[in-house]
């Protein structure tokens, strides 16, 4: 008895005094996740302060054309004499905007379908799930190409296309989580104390399916950024002269024999940002998924 009390006290002081109050709790110490967080935060900072960071106007054609990197033009210039570094800095805005908005579109469609299917059940459930099956039955990029191509090549339509393509995945995961949470005793107790419909969803369902959703959204953010770059590369996303990394790479193909730099930096930018989100997603999964933590 005495021994156990002593142990508890010792553990407690170790917990409190062993590390300062501002330090990261052990389960959040995840080098890959933190590296990802740093990259993501840096990208957000670059996107917000783009006009301050970029040395030139991204559309100004006042430099000599197809220059190699130099002190004046860190990443060289493109075929119209625009500064590549400035265009990449502004391109961060496009990438983040597309990533966030298309994942939000997917999340809203997916949550509506998934919660309705899981919560209402029955015929509604099988009807909605058959519909998501049909959307799932297309190879992702083909569906994105067809939707954005038919709606007309623009960034808005690319975001809609990517959102629709990712929606079924969210719908399935959300429906699955709703079904498993619905059978939990605390949801039942919620029902017993009289919570109905929206309140049950809001107070009992949503908070409990949030963790898998956050991980999923982070991972899909990286895919969405890649998809937008791919669509813009194919001429179906952001249209010139707006600076998007995929579009810049597409233009670079024509000039890469003379100026390989044009093909290198936009791709590098895409890779680093996507890597950041993938690292973050990987880290979040380790931290938020209790099943993996035990191992």
């Amino acid at each position: 008895m005495t021994t156990s009390t002593v142990t508890a006290v010792t553990l407690d002081t170790a917990g409190v005094r062993g590390r300062p109050w501002w330090s990261i709790p052990p389960r959040w110490r995840n080098p890959i996740g933190i590296a990802g967080l740093v990259i993501v935060v840096l990208t957000i900072v670059v996107a917000i302060f783009a006009p301050v960071i970029a040395p030139y106007d991204p559309d100004a054609q006042d430099n000599t054309r197809l220059l190699s990197p130099s002190a004046a033009n860190l990443m060289g210039t493109d075929e119209l004499g625009r500064d590549t570094f400035s265009r990449i800095v502004f391109g961060a805005r496009v990438s983040l905007q597309v990533g966030v908005i298309s994942v939000l579109i997917a999340l809203v469609i997916g949550a509506t379908l998934g919660i309705t299917a899981g919560y209402v059940g029955g015929t509604m459930d099988s009807l909605l799930m058959r519909f998501t099956d049909v959307l799932f039955a297309f190879p992702g990029l083909v569906l994105a190409i067809v939707i954005s191509g038919l709606l007309g090549a623009s960034r808005t339509n690319a975001m809609i296309a990517i959102g629709i393509v990712y929606a079924p995945a969210f719908a399935r995961v959300i429906r699955g989580s709703v079904l498993s949470v619905m059978s939990e005793p605390y949801v039942e107790s919620g029902r017993v104390i009289g919570a109905t419909g929206p309140r049950l969803v809001q107070q009992y369902l949503l908070p409990n399916i949030l963790a898998p959703l956050i991980v999923m959204a982070t991972v899909y953010l990286s895919s969405a950024i890649l998809s937008e770059a791919a669509l813009s590369f194919l001429g179906l996303g952001t249209q010139p002269p707006e600076p998007s990394w995929g579009g810049m790479l597409n233009l670079a193909r024509t000039y890469m024999e003379i100026s390989p730099w044009m093909a290198i930096f936009p791709g590098l930018a895409i890779m680093i940002v996507v890597l950041g989100f993938n690292f973050l997603g990987d880290g979040l999964r380790d931290v938020l998924d209790p099943r993996l933590r035990e191992r």
Partner: peptide
């Protein structure tokens, strides 16, 4: 593995051609 996930295939293909 994470780097491989993040490499845009259109960039790789362009670089390979280059």
């Amino acid at each position: 593995g994470l780097i491989g996930l993040s490499l845009p295939n259109f960039w790789l293909a362009t670089l390979a051609l280059l």
